[in-house]
Write a protein that binds this DNA or RNA. Sequence first.
DNA 1: GTTCTTGCAAAATATTTGCAAGACG
DNA 2: CGTCTTGCAAATATTTTGCAAGAAC
Lengths: 134, 134
Amino acid sequence: MNPIDILKTHQLKRTVCREGILSALLSANKALSEEEVKSKIDGNFDRTTFYRSFKTLIEHNVLHKIVVDEGLVKYAITIVGKTPEHHHAHFVCKKCHTVSCLDAFTFKVPNLPSGYQTEDSDLLIKGVCKMCTI
Amino acid sequence: MNPIDILKTHQLKRTVCREGILSALLSANKALSEEEVKSKIDGNFDRTTFYRSFKTLIEHNVLHKIVVDEGLVKYAITIVGKTPEHHHAHFVCKKCHTVSCLDAFTFKVPNLPSGYQTEDSDLLIKGVCKMCTI
DNA sequence: GTTCTTGCAAAATATTTGCAAGACG
DNA sequence: CGTCTTGCAAATATTTTGCAAGAAC
């Protein structure tokens, strides 16, 4: 999957900023903050442009946003294909602050008290990642 | 449990703002935003004071913060006594935006890929709550 | 050429910090 | 009284909006 195809698939115009964001995220293989994306691409875009590009990509389900408690905002590519009842999780490392999507790892939300209907979920697991454990 | 005892237990000074926050949260039985807490208490406190009070209470493990993607920040009383390996979840209703701690509901974080160590987690389940389903 | 996107300026929000006055214990 | 907390002012940071110029298709 490459930036151009992704944009085409979602009927989004191909712009330098969007392509940059997507290729940064595709090659990073982890969630990146606006700051991190910025440092990975050439063009120097206005902050407004980033906000709007992320917003558009999220609305079209290309990306999703991960908010860590302390206000850290990161973005990641949305992988499709999960069963609706299986949800995926994110992992944030307390040492290196890397946020990654645990794509291979899905879980089923256990049954809630009666009356509650689950539509969606966010599971953020905090701990120490593989690299930092060594 | 009442505000005064909670503060005493954590060796925190008893101030009107802290007591107000705690009694608002204790009686609400759900997570409240700064705004909501403000409307539930008499005194008119500066925003800075709220920020600092929440911060202190969180640092002392009296409260915890729940951040919903869209930037909504809520606070809730921390209930102690869970087993370390069992984590608790929050539920946010997409209709009424109520955020509640599912205290009776605990889950065990499934095993992660090797190398990852779980220390903590945040599970935010999104859906429709009991009241809004009816 | 029409529509969508960008950059810039500016507003609206949110959060943090320093400091002097005041409350707590 | 010594220490911690509050209110105020102000500095930062974050996010949103309007509008004209430019790019995409």
